[in-house]
């Protein structure tokens, strides 16, 4: 299964929920915001929201700024 994350292609063995995908990528889900095919996801939906082939994800975070 191939999907696009922050404009880069990533390959996973199979379709997987957002939470598993983040785990695979070693990303702490606490500090990020996920946009899936243009839709902002609630954190509580990470466990059951499936990422499928050709889906687009944006992984965003808050950084220092003024």
């Amino acid at each position: 299964m191939q999907c696009i994350i922050n404009d880069e292609k990533y390959t996973f063995d199979e379709e997987l929920p957002v939470s598993k995908l983040l785990e695979h990528m070693n990303i702490d889900s606490e500090r990020i915001v996920v946009e899936h095919n243009g839709e902002l996801l609630r954190k509580k939906s990470f466990d059951h929201h499936l990422v499928r082939s050709d889906d687009r994800l944006e992984l965003l975070e808050f950084v220092g700024g003024g």
Binding site: N6, E8, I27, I32, L59, L60, F62, V63, G64, G65
Partner: peptide
């Protein structure tokens, strides 16, 4: 506190 929103740097998490 003010801060900004950015894409996560996936190469240097």
């Amino acid at each position: 506190l003010t801060f900004a929103v950015r894409r996560m740097n996936l190469y240097d998490k």
